[in-house]
Design a protein around this nucleic acid. Structure first.
Lengths: 250, 250
DNA sequence: GTACTATGCATTGTATACATTTCTTGCGCT
DNA sequence: AGCGCAAGAAATGTATACAATGCATAGTAC
């Protein structure tokens, strides 16, 4: 049962996917994979914000599939802790509170510290050059003021670096943590600030190439610390908080 | 469409759940939660082994639900990396190879080392007494030669300890790793050997109570090392490997 | 006798119809 | 005017029908 069509679908479908994130999972041949990636991309690009309700009928209409497919995609996003599904009340994009945000970044430090170490065992010069190309793309998007795309590629750098390690378990966890981080940035970013600096990414690649494991691990940890430091985790935010939105009114 | 009924369903439904594992997720009110937990329990009890095909019709018949519900449960298990879903070919329980097994145990060392530290901030004497009760139940099951139940409670100890930390991110990862470990044990266990010694669990609780964080972390790591050491990770196993099964024949 | 192919069966993928629950809104009561 | 309640609308949960895919077996050609 088609609710509304036309107007909304264009803006989503016209978007050209700059990068296909993770085609790792099973069922890549099925339709829900596409939906899953589309929604994930929209989150990484900050086209979808924390707290947004994802109605099954609307998504089914936009992507011209049945609710069955939509539900599969939403369930996967739920397991990634990117959307929250409440029984009989549907799916909404998560809104991490401050302590949750800190927890997620702490988990990233733990996991990426290990991943850097394991990745360095497989970091050939050509693999590192590929990484550099990835960061260059990120830098160019930011220069072109495509902030959303830049942010997505920034997350991509972390995943691609991780993938050198071939540790699919930890890579899987990181693939959940990166979109979560993107939502945290959306909620707690301070204005006019490039958050995940590409220069730090370049530096990180150089240190990895030097072969100093300890230094690389420290730099990764420092890099994630910097991301956290640039956020305003001092006071709570809520997407639907009208009081915060209209705080300037006396 | 009901394929076969009666004979098989009894053995599963008669099983009294000794413990309800994780009611953490959303959609706990829906039916697929029950299926998910039943299958998970069966895996933790070693009533379901690596490589087993999970046919949708059969499960739907056994639990008297539609395939819709079964598919939801299977998808969740797939995301937990406990079953493997291939498009158009259905779901089978994973068969971790040796390197995957080592990877999973390495991930556990990393994550549980951190979880112990964070849990110790909340480890009140009464919380630790609850843990002791849990281990006692484990010990009693083993004494009664209910090896499967003992193993399940053993995994439960690790999860309950983790839950003191209140770090839901890492707890979530551990909840995936514990059933995976159970499958690894099923594949690579050496005969006549209690694998996850409850005595080590008691000792671990004592060290936690002492307040020495470093010692507790080391002991947890050592405990997981011991589990790995008791496994035969020397040579590959395959559930369907006839050559291995009939190795004694000249 | 072997290899290739075609047909039928088994199983999964998708769409849709119906049941159930929740949310909204308007009415009536105090 | 404010509160509570009830009926309708909207959204989700579940079951089932049909389509598409994969697998096995039997048949045929070489």
């Amino acid at each position: 049962m088609v609710v509304k069509s036309g107007s909304k679908s264009k803006s989503v479908e016209a978007q050209e996917p700059l990068f296909v994130p993770n085609a790792n999972d099973a069922s890549s041949a099925t339709q829900d994979e596409r939906l899953y990636n589309e929604i994930l991309d929209a989150i990484l690009d900050h086209r979808l914000s924390p707290g947004i309700k994802l109605k099954e009928d609307e998504l089914a209409d936009i992507f011209s599939v049945s609710r069955t497919v939509v539900r599969r995609a939403l369930l996967r996003l739920c397991h990634d802790r990117i959307v929250d599904i409440q029984p009989n009340r549907g799916a909404t994009i998560i809104q991490p509170d401050v302590s949750k945000a800190r927890e997620i970044l702490r988990a990233r430090r733990l996991i990426e510290r290990e991943l850097v170490k394991e990745a360095m065992q497989f970091a050939t010069p050509s693999a590192l050059d590929n990484l550099r190309v990835c960061v260059e793309g990120e830098r160019d998007q930011v220069r072109k003021h495509h902030v959303g795309s830049g942010l997505r590629l920034s997350g991509d750098f972390h995943v691609q670096l991780a993938q050198l390690s071939q540790n699919t378990t930890l890579i899987g966890y990181l693939k959940e943590l990166v979109p979560q981080t993107s939502l945290i940035i959306a909620m707690y970013q301070t204005p006019h600030h490039t958050l995940c600096s590409h220069q730090e990414h370049f530096d990180l690649i150089d240190v990895i190439q030097s072969g100093d494991v300890e230094a690389a691990q420290s730099m990764m940890e420092q890099h994630l610390d910097n991301i956290e430091a640039k956020l305003d985790l001092g006071n709570e935010r809520t997407a639907g908080d009208l009081y915060a939105a209209f705080a300037h009114v006396k």
